[in-house]
Design a protein around this nucleic acid. Structure first.
Lengths: 217, 217
DNA sequence: CGTACTTTTGAATCGCATCAAATCTGGTGG
DNA sequence: CCACCAGATTTGATGCGATTCAAAAGTACG
């Protein structure tokens, strides 16, 4: 279940995930691949991080539970690293669960730290990655500070979509959790926005697609 | 208003802000110091970042305005770097304003990037800094995902305080904004929590101090 | 002493959470 | 292929809690 990869397999992964191109050879050699089933919890809060995880297919999520039992999603990744900050900590602060059947690469933490020390290009790429995550999280905080479901929806489309168009890569139900809303509130807000012309929606294949309709300031 | 610092001034700053100790000499030589008045806006959204900013006294904030005009605070720093991600971007995504009269060090971005390339220790320290910011922002997202003012307050005390004790380093009004609440809602929630024994409060000097009272699960 | 700001309380309103239930969907196994 | 099931989507009714608007009292500062 966790074999090392052949040269050819690596080339395949790199084609699909260009971020891997900056990976030094030492790390490639140390990497193993893992396949998980939907719903599986890979690591729990308090576990000692042993690997840096890179999603190549499916989706991993960082989650925590509020005391009322509701699940909070702190990060979703369908392609790329998850739990970047675990490089620096001795324990996970979140659970790591597979939202779907997921394939991922695992890089031993020690090798990862060493590669960062040794390889300047890799280091630069990693810093960019962290900075990008910081920007993304700031946007998420800004969104959650908005009152009103419609405002959060529009903010999300602007931040995560392109030119007012957003292909939703998850169920509306789990999107609701990401927006800090109940799923009922989200469904109703979407319906209202469509009815009042603030939004257009469409199914493209099995993807739900949203178009923001520009409003006068 | 922006003189270079003497050896002695540097030693003073480093004593008060140990994070500066990891700073290579080249950056120290390139740094200038700036003093701003309360309320002053140093940079606006869209400006081209020219310096990395390090607060040594007072407080800087990263802010944005929601379309309803409400101010959203994305980062507060009374000691240390602000707007870390501006190292990677060609434009500011937030305004940078002084919450109080503030003193800060300014490091030219070009020198900063070069120092990261050249100095491994500095680079490691910077990556830790970014990872720490990621964790902090995730905590903030988790907090904002909570419904209920009391839950956010308790979460904040647990995350930012020590052993259930929190010294508030800002007015309750601006704390309310950080919690994603109106100031009225915060005042009322605090009053209710004190009345029902979930919280104890106290003024120590001019600092508002909070004590969470442990509840059974 | 006056001015600006924070803290505090009050009343009315509105939006979201909550609980409930029906419909629709995709996927599984018989 | 169809019956069935789990989960997502959708609609409804109700209540609570936060927002909003308003105003008074307290506090810091020049």
């Amino acid at each position: 279940m966790t074999p090392h990869l052949s040269e050819e397999e690596w080339n395949e992964r790199v084609r699909a995930h260009p971020e891997l191109a900056a990976m030094p050879q030492s790390l490639r050699d140390a990497a193993t691949e893992q396949q998980t089933k939907a719903g599986e919890r890979l690591y729990a809060i308090g576990d000692r991080p042993q690997f840096m995880l890179f999603v190549t297919a499916g989706e991993l999520r960082l989650t925590r539970r509020a005391q009322n039992g509701a699940e909070v999603i702190l990060q979703r990744s369908a392609s790329g690293f998850v739990a970047e900050a675990s490089l620096e900590t001795s324990r996970y602060h979140c659970d790591i669960v597979a939202a779907q059947s997921t394939r991922l690469l695992r890089f031993p933490i020690g090798c990862f730290r060493e590669a960062l020390r040794e390889d300047a290009a890799f280091q630069a790429a990693w810093m960019s990655r962290l900075a990008q995550e910081v920007r993304k999280l700031r946007a998420q905080c800004e969104r959650l500070s908005l009152h009103g479901a419609a405002e959060r929806i529009e903010h999300y489309i602007e931040a995560e979509g392109q030119g007012g168009r957003l292909e939703l890569r998850q169920s509306r139900k789990s999107w609701a959790a990401e927006l800090g809303l109940t799923h009922e509130a989200l469904y109703r807000a979407l319906a209202t926005m469509v009815r009042t012309g603030r939004l257009r929606t469409e199914m493209q294949g099995d993807r739900f697609v949203l178009f923001a309709c520009p409003r006068k300031h």
